[in-house]
Design a binder for these strands. Structure first.
Lengths: 120, 120
DNA sequence: CGGGATCCGTGGCGATACTG
DNA sequence: CAGTATCGCCACGGATCCCG
């Protein structure tokens, strides 16, 4: 970025930063899966299996970022084939609330908007 | 709750598409400004002035997309220096609800997160 | 004044390969 | 099984020029 981080609207606009995170391709999906599965916890491969099309790299990156942000909890079982369980933290769960509201809006209204503008 | 597992993971996934839109750099800011200014309506230059750092291209692109999606209304005054006023449609206003909830969450919790992680 | 067209850098993201 | 490392594409977005 040409500008230093956090100069323009950062102090006044944490929303921008939040959207930068949850707007990335896989975050909302991970959060939803974890929200549904919590507190059973899910392992990496299971998560990947439930997310058709995600690469290990992006899933790993996404999870690392969410973990770093304190939204996702990570528990490692040091067995010989290591097992890593992921779950939502309380913070992550609290984010799920407004996020699911957004999801509801999307499912309600996006159908209309549908194909007029975007071309994925 | 709609427990269909497919909704978020569909190729047609509405949530994904919504986040693709509102996740873009300036959308949330435009929506917020329009929500605050409605129904006075704002002109292009005024909008740009209130958004430090936005280029006219991105503001124009953002507005065009939002207009096409039916979230933003556009009114042109055919004076000699043309005046174009923007406002939120009812659909846009309805999006403002979950969006402001997300904003509230961000303002409440992003401060903590912001310190630990700087690069999305 | 509003905003389309163009050039171009950056980085998000996928594919592949390798480690512990 | 659960990652990390490397390469490369291309869409997002910034700067600039120009037109109605």
């Amino acid at each position: 970025m040409t500008t230093r981080r956090g100069d323009l609207f950062d102090p006044a606009c944490p929303t921008r930063r939040l959207l930068d995170r949850i707007g990335t391709k896989w975050v909302s999906m991970v959060v939803k899966l974890l929200a549904e599965a919590d507190p059973e916890e899910i392992r990496f491969a299971e998560l990947q299996r439930r997310m058709p099309g995600v690469s290990q790299k992006m899933l790993s990156t996404t999870l690392r970022q969410l973990t770093r942000d304190g939204l996702v909890g990570r528990r490692v079982e040091p067995t010989v084939p290591p097992k890593v369980y992921y779950s939502l933290t309380d913070l992550g769960l609290s984010l799920e609330v407004p996020l699911s509201a957004l999801r509801a809006w999307a499912e309600e209204h996006m159908a209309l908007i549908g194909e007029s503008a975007t071309s994925p």
